Amino acid sequence: MGGVAEGRAKRDQRAARSSGFRVPTVQKLGSLLQLFIPEAVDGCAPCKVCKLQDIARHLGWDDGTTHRFLVSLTEIGMLERTSDDRFRIGVLAMQLASVYVAASELRGVILEKIEELSAATRLTTEVGALQSGAMVVIASRQGSMPLTSRCMLGEKVPLHATAGGKAILSQLGDAEVEELCRGKLVGLASNTRTTLSSLMWDIGHARESGFVSTLSEYAEGLRSIAIPLPAGCFGTGPAALACSGPAILSGPGWEIAEEELRAFAATLPRGVA
């Protein structure tokens, strides 16, 4: 427990040092935009569209303040207003995402690998990165199997129940893993790890092998395999490249996926600037 307390203390110190540089308006904008990111476990609609009143109620703001923020974000293209007076993510977000991907050659290589893997295996292939205590889907290619994982771009996926999430956790220290997962080990399928000890066993194995495999943890009958992507590939924290689909396939999809992922992992740098 000492390690957990020490890790929390260091984060609190960093937060205290940086708090003087925070602009309250920007922090509020961030809180508002976060509402447009779907949560996998909540079963949100594929394209999240929000009403002004719902946003205000969720954030605890009055309607006037919420309206001013929404109008400002709409004017710069970060949000769009629909014909029925709702709001959704706008074109500026897509433009910024394109610039983000183009800023790193390695990101382009990883995105090409997603396309190759999905085409060769028919499995859903995705990249997830650590953000706000969850794995956020950064890029994905939907598989063509009857059973696939629903992985909308920007979606938050539980760390403890997916191969990608465990590949991310394997790059963190034990204290940080415990803090991230405390109170979040919710059972989603028959094999979901709902105790910290069982999760830590999986993470220990992932650290040794550099590879993660799960079965019926996120959804019944769904298998997933993943490799870690070092911090700096997508954001400042760790990320993962994963394939998922039905556990039993008629072809060699899983064999191809594992071979390709392991080979790709061997080409990755240990640290990315």
Rank of each mutant, 00 (worst) to 15 (best):
A129K: 05
G77R: 06
C181L: 11
A56G: 01
Q95F: 02
K51A: 14
G143K: 07
G253S: 10
H205S: 07
A5N: 08
A219G: 03
S104F: 14
G164A: 09
L147M: 10
P252C: 04
S19R: 15
L185H: 00
I203E: 04
A231T: 12
L241Q: 14
Q131E: 14
V23T: 04
D174E: 14
A266K: 15
L70S: 03
H205K: 12
M152S: 11
S170A: 15
M200K: 01
T194W: 00
L147W: 06
F211V: 08
T162Y: 10
E208N: 02
L73I: 04
L32N: 03
F36N: 03
I138F: 04
A102D: 15
T267A: 10
F87M: 05
S190H: 00
G251T: 12
L33E: 02
D62T: 07
E258W: 12
L117N: 04
L33N: 03
T195H: 04
A219R: 02
F69H: 06
D62H: 13
S244E: 08
E220N: 08
S190N: 05
T192E: 01
Q53S: 12
S244I: 04
A45S: 10
V26G: 05
R270S: 05
R81H: 05
V177A: 03
L172D: 13
L117T: 02
D42C: 11
A226W: 11
R88H: 09
S170Y: 07
C44I: 06
V272N: 12
P269D: 15
G20I: 07
I110L: 13
T124K: 03
Q142P: 00
S198E: 08
V91A: 06
E178D: 07
L96P: 00
L180K: 00
I89W: 03
P230K: 13
T267R: 15
L241T: 02
L33G: 09
L106Y: 15
C243G: 09
I138Y: 02
P252I: 02
A5T: 12
E259S: 14
S224P: 05
V137W: 01
C181F: 01
G235M: 06
G108K: 07
A226C: 03
L268T: 05
L130R: 06
G173Y: 08
D202C: 14
F69C: 07
L32C: 09
L96V: 06
F211G: 01
F264Y: 15
E220S: 10
S19A: 12
T195C: 06
E217A: 11
A265C: 08
L111D: 11
D62L: 08
S170Q: 13
L268Y: 15
L96S: 04
I256M: 13
L180N: 08
A242M: 12
L123W: 00
S144P: 00
A265P: 00
E217S: 09
S190W: 00
E217T: 05
L215G: 02
S140C: 11
E75L: 11
S132N: 10
H205A: 14
V157A: 08
R150C: 13
A139Y: 01
L106F: 14
T65H: 05
A265K: 15
V127P: 06
M152N: 04
F264I: 00
H58M: 13
Q34M: 13
G165W: 02
G204C: 08
D84K: 00
Q131V: 01
M152Q: 08
E105C: 00
A102S: 11
A5D: 07
D174F: 04
A175T: 12
A247R: 10
S98F: 01
Q27C: 12
L92I: 03
R262E: 01
F36D: 04
